[in-house]
């Protein structure tokens, strides 16, 4: 039996007020899977994600996360919904004036009634899970780009969200660090059962981590293909094959 989707996107118009990029796209994300949103530059990948995490108002259509419509949720219901999701931004978006531990503890300080020691324990565990034990007292400016992204994942997971969104996790990383980050995402997804939604165009990451993907296209103003990465790579559709082939040629 197919499980109930944790994210349901229906007839979503992607874009900004006065500028629409994609028309009426729809897809489902299932619990525990690593889902990829792919496409070339400017095709609306990150904008789609911004709609999904509530940063951009919907131009049309609906997005439900764990059964709650993100555009209709108000007040306490919206706060509850936001606690179900975590986001890792492209550059990590860690607070520069706080240590890594303080960064990860911040959501716990605001949204739980645990004691300081208990919050520290939860935050320390998060940092250990992403391999940053021993760096708790470091400032974001003192660590590498890959470590900053791992710390950002730890912060995104602080409140035990059901879905973690990752915006271009491989951007700016060397292939080895990028592969390590992919392994971390995979381990967290498989062990903790977290659903990951990943915006990317890195072919290596896609094949290593993504269970299913959608390929967005600016010209088609919608989803060009949907399925497992290997299926899409062998797609008879020349536009889909071109995306994977060009990426493959460009990959190191």
């Amino acid at each position: 039996m197919t499980p109930r989707p944790i994210i349901e996107v229906r007839d979503l118009d992607v874009g900004y007020p006065g500028y629409r990029i994609l028309d009426g796209i729809g897809f489902d994300v299932y619990p525990g899977e690593v889902f990829g949103i792919l496409g070339g530059s400017g095709c609306g990948k990150s904008t789609t994600m911004k709609h999904m995490i509530g940063l951009l108002p919907l131009l049309g259509g609906s997005i439900k996360i764990a059964g709650t419509d993100i555009s209709l949720a108000r007040g306490e219901e919206r706060v509850d919904l936001l606690r179900q999701i975590g986001v890792m931004y492209q550059q990590g978006a860690l607070f520069g004036s706080m240590t890594l531990l303080e960064n990860v503890r911040l959501p716990l300080d605001e949204h739980t009634h645990l004691t300081r020691h208990q919050r520290d324990m939860v935050a320390l565990l998060r940092l250990r899970l992403v391999g940053l034990q021993g760096f708790e007292r470091f400032m974001p400016s003192d660590i590498s780009g890959g470590m900053r992204k791992r710390a950002a994942i730890a912060r995104a997971m602080a409140l035990e969200p059901r879905v973690v969104f990752l915006d271009e996790p491989a951007a700016g990383l060397d292939p080895i660090t990028s592969a390590e980050l992919d392994q971390l995402i995979l381990r967290l997804a498989k062990t903790l059962g977290i659903t990951f939604v990943m915006v990317t165009h890195e072919l290596a990451s896609i094949f290593d981590t993504n269970d299913r993907v959608i390929l967005l296209d600016k010209k088609a103003r919608g989803i060009l293909a949907e399925g497992r990465p290997a299926e899409l790579r062998d797609s008879p559709n020349p536009a889909v094959a071109r995306f994977f082939r060009r990426n493959a040629e460009a990959s190191p």
């Binding site: 020691h117 324990m121 565990l125 250990r128 899970l129 034990q133 007292r137 062990t191």
Partner: peptide, 13 residues
């Protein structure tokens, strides 16, 4: 197993 219970979580100094 992933959390490595056998090793203390360092409480911050």
């Amino acid at each position: 197993d992933l959390a490595e219970l056998d090793q203390d979580l360092q409480t911050p100094s």
